[in-house]
Write a protein that binds this DNA or RNA. Structure first.
Length: 585
DNA sequence: ATAGGGTTAG
């Protein structure tokens, strides 16, 4: 006997059959036939449930077929359909389609309809459609519905329209945790890590208790900024408040530790996780790779396989680049072949780049170039040629470099980075006439190279420095300290490396720039502001130049400090006068 | 029945 519940009637047998079938097409077809035969074919609740399951089973045509058989579909049925289709990324477009059908049929949308259709617009990054739907929200009087408002914040955030995200957010009277999370995540996803953290602080002041989704965004922001102390605070908060370390939150933590250069803490978190999927393994593999532990990255890749998980294309990028940075050429070649042969995936541009980069770094320029010519004979992607060009510069192969650069400049004439590398190559070859030509070309096209900057976190605040920067309040003390430091370095044997990077600069800029590259300023500031024994962590937006790399080795020895620099590509751990990259970048 | 989250070379 079933126990009687006051609010819940027991399901009909047909409904129970549907529940048992679940999102499995062949079973749904059977139950559907049974429903029709037994005369329940017009039951709205049964058809709605069937429709949801058909959609969850992945068959849009079957879903549509069921829908079309319903005479005069009402708001509930339309909404149900729109919600089902909004749940799968593949069907987002159908969600918009059914929404427009709904309006055409003169059926009124509800706040439930809007949350779903807005989510679909967000998943599609369809800002224009989203704006139109926002208009409908206002017309139908749901402008102050907290659920709809939170969805709108997420929509604008995902579409990169932070102004409008903030406008909606500011109008919300009772901000739910989801509204806060959507806004914080919007800032973070668009590269405004500082703003994300600032809003998180305001959220705390307001007395709203953060949850795991909040911390996922905050940890991403920490990762972005290299904000180790704030990241550690978050970790302690998570543990102290007994938040469940689910796979997403765990991966965020791993990523935070990795991007702050602390691989062992990342591994601790990894080992403590109950559930680990490919994304978590990939984060850890990439962490070993970027921090210079190539063989550990490869080892972890194989361990993942032994655990029965399959790598995806991002996993291969992580493990191949780990091989590239560690000089593990044979292993890298084998892994590349396995993408197709063992895993039946198709290597993409990103994998070709890794392979060319790996061969190029190892000095196998001919093999790399032949690979491009044979595997991608027609229009190799600029990224692949860029990797090839970098290798030519690294191994001072001027002829091949000029040849590759010619292709590259034809393909991307507006990218200043290509001109910079080419002029570097000519400078290394001593062809100053060519350097001049390339530079004039850049000037004529009004192309400027990217401005370098470095950041450092002190007392949970992030400070930014750029080359020759004098905007900081303690500029004088920093420069004075840095001058003394560089003097000590020279006494210890440091010789400034006037490498090719210098040749792009105007004559009078050189000496100034050499001493005051942004990472040196940030390190000087860090040494002044933090106590002995604390590692200095720097994040740089470009690659480090050879001179800084050499200088920082001396600085680490003289000041007896561990200095960790994350550049555009990887980490450098400086300790006792040497670097973890072993000068193989 | 409602909204928000993690991995990627150069």
């Amino acid at each position: 006997m079933e126990t009687k519940q006051p609010h819940k009637l027991p399901h009909s047998p047909a409904y129970n059959f549907l529940l048992q079938a679940g999102p499995r097409l062949y079973l749904l077809h059977q139950v559907h036939a049974h429903i029709v035969v037994s005369g329940y074919g017009r039951s709205r609740s049964l058809l709605t449930k069937l429709l949801n399951l058909a959609c969850a089973a992945g068959s849009i045509s079957y879903t549509r077929q069921i829908f079309l058989a319903v005479p005069n579909p009402d708001s509930f049925l339309f909404t149900s359909l729109i919600k089902s289709t909004s749940k799968s990324h593949n069907f987002s477009i159908y969600s918009l389609y059914f929404y427009s059908r709904m309006l055409l049929c003169n059926v009124s949308p509800s706040n439930y309809t809007f949350t779903s259709v807005i989510k679909s617009c967000a998943d599609l990054s369809a800002l224009k459609h989203g704006r139109v739907v926002h208009g409908h929200v206002l017309v139908h009087g749901f402008g102050l519905d907290v659920y709809v408002q939170a969805a709108l914040v997420a929509l604008y955030g995902k579409c990169g329209d932070l102004i409008n995200a903030r406008k909606v957010f500011d109008k919300i009277r009772e901000r739910s945790i989801v509204a806060w999370n959507s806004m914080i995540s919007g800032y973070e996803q668009n590269g405004f890590a500082k703003e994300a953290i600032g809003l998180f602080d305001r959220m705390k002041e307001t007395g709203v208790e953060p949850d795991s989704a909040t911390f996922v965004s905050v940890l991403s922001a920490c990762a972005h900024l290299g904000a180790f102390n704030l990241g550690c605070w978050v970790h302690k908060y998570i543990v102290g408040n007994g938040l469940d370390l689910n796979v997403v939150l765990g991966t965020s933590l791993i990523n935070m530790y990795i991007r702050c250069g602390n691989v062992s803490k990342a591994r601790e978190v990894f080992d403590s996780m109950k559930e680990r999927n490919v994304v978590a393994w990939t984060a850890m593999i990439s962490g070993y790779g970027t921090n210079g532990y190539g063989s550990q990255a490869v080892e972890l890749f194989h361990e993942m396989r032994r655990n029965g998980l399959f790598p995806n294309s991002i996993t291969f990028v992580a493990v191949l680049s780990a091989c590239a940075h560690a000089g593990l050429v044979n292993e890298g070649r084998r892994l590349f072949v396995s993408i197709r042969e063992e895993y039946h995936l198709v290597p993409g541009v990103e994998h070709h780049v890794c392979l060319v980069d790996m061969l190029g770094r190892a000095g196998l320029l001919d093999e790399a170039y032949n690979f491009i010519k044979e595997e991608i004979p027609e229009n190799p992607a600029p990224a692949i040629l860029t990797a090839m060009l970098g290798a030519c510069k690294m191994h001072k192969n001027f002829d091949l470099g000029a040849q590759v650069a010619e292709h590259l400049l034809a393909a991307e004439p507006e990218n200043p980075a290509h001109y910079v590398i080419l002029s570097n190559i000519y400078a290394l070859a001593g062809r100053m006439d060519q350097v001049e030509k390339v530079r004039n070309n850049m000037i004529r096209k009004c192309l400027k190279k990217q401005v370098g900057y470095s950041t450092i976190e002190v007392d949970q605040k992030t400070y930014l420095f750029s080359m020759g920067d004098k905007s900081h309040s303690e500029t004088n003390a920093i420069y004075h300290f840095l001058d003394e430091l560089m003097w000590k370095c020279r006494e210890a044997g440091y010789v400034p490396v006037s490498d090719s990077v210098m040749h792009e600069l105007e004559e009078e800029e050189r000496e100034h720039a050499l001493r005051y590259h942004s990472e040196k300023l940030a390190i000087a500031f860090g040494l002044l502001k933090t106590s002995h024994g604390t590692p200095i962590r720097i994040v740089k937006n470009l690659r480090m130049c050879e001179d800084c790399h050499s200088a920082i080795k001396f600085i680490s020895a003289i000041s007896s400090r561990e200095i960790i620099v994350r550049d555009k590509l990887r980490f450098h751990h400086f300790k006792f006068g040497s670097c973890s990259c072993l000068d193989y970048w």
